[in-house]
Design a protein around this nucleic acid. Sequence first.
DNA 1: GCATTAAAAGACATTGACGTCTTTTTTAAA
DNA 2: TTTAAAAAAGACGTCAATGTCTTTTAATGC
Lengths: 163, 163
Amino acid sequence: MLFSKSFGYALRGILYVALAQSEGRRVQVDEISEKLGVPRHFLGKILNRMVKEGLLQSVKGPYGGFALAAATLQTPLLKLIELTDGLGTFNNCVLRLHACNAVNPCPLHHQVMDIKNNLQHMMMGTLVSDLMIGDREAFIRSIATEELDGLLQKITNHDEHDA
Amino acid sequence: MLFSKSFGYALRGILYVALAQSEGRRVQVDEISEKLGVPRHFLGKILNRMVKEGLLQSVKGPYGGFALAAATLQTPLLKLIELTDGLGTFNNCVLRLHACNAVNPCPLHHQVMDIKNNLQHMMMGTLVSDLMIGDREAFIRSIATEELDGLLQKITNHDEHDA
DNA sequence: GCATTAAAAGACATTGACGTCTTTTTTAAA
DNA sequence: TTTAAAAAAGACGTCAATGTCTTTTAATGC
């Protein structure tokens, strides 16, 4: 697994807020977690972190919720990694050898460095806005867990089978 | 972190057995774990797994220990990943979306697929034997944790600084 | 002020990766 | 046959990532 689950939740959450933003409204954690199929309170903490780091704005109380900060759409995904997993993802030795570097490389150092560099450049060059697509329904589907639909489908089929 | 710690231990363990093999001897877990700076019992279990999967051979009792199986030097690293982390590493969605695929891709699907493909091809094309280098000392250094030396160094420098 | 809404904060639980310890089994040598 | 060496097996412990629940704080409308 390249990145943590927290990174995934952060990105998907921000993308959902961006969608709502494009419709001119704020969203609450309840709506986000429900639509995306993501744990409510865990997501809350992650969005909280994003607020502290300046990627999101939040308003408490009635008619409150989350909105994007001004620069968020132009934020590279690398920034999100930095806030969730940390940049060790790209810098640390794949074998976790502390002494591994260009002078004293681990057996996989060079091969893996190439790939980690590619990954880092991709994450640096990809902005949040690059991930938004026009069709609202397709967009939501592409960031939703979609486990519920699948389960319901299975249960339904199973019931029919039983009947 | 691309791969698990277990993968790292497995690879480093096998490489150390290969080194001993090239010197015409078997090695015990005690020596491997000591020389590499890896937890004794945990490593034991991993080597055990490698025996079951046919990458290593083991002999119990006095003068026993581990040796390479015939084909191990020609084994691609991908096989090792398969035995430790599983191939989900290369196949699963980076955002852990079960429904993510080419038809209904997550926002990062295509970019990440390219990189995961590169990684997989590299691991398929790299054999255990490709990671062995001639100089015995340099080879051991490149797969050893080397935390102890580093710490001693730091403590020494620190003491000098204090004095 | 009071009630309501929603984020923020923090205590607590769960899980899997990682690690340790003890006992059992197998093998070889004396 | 006994003893010692070493892997194998399995119980148990630890920790960080993940997830849940409750309480607190802040904002809004009446």
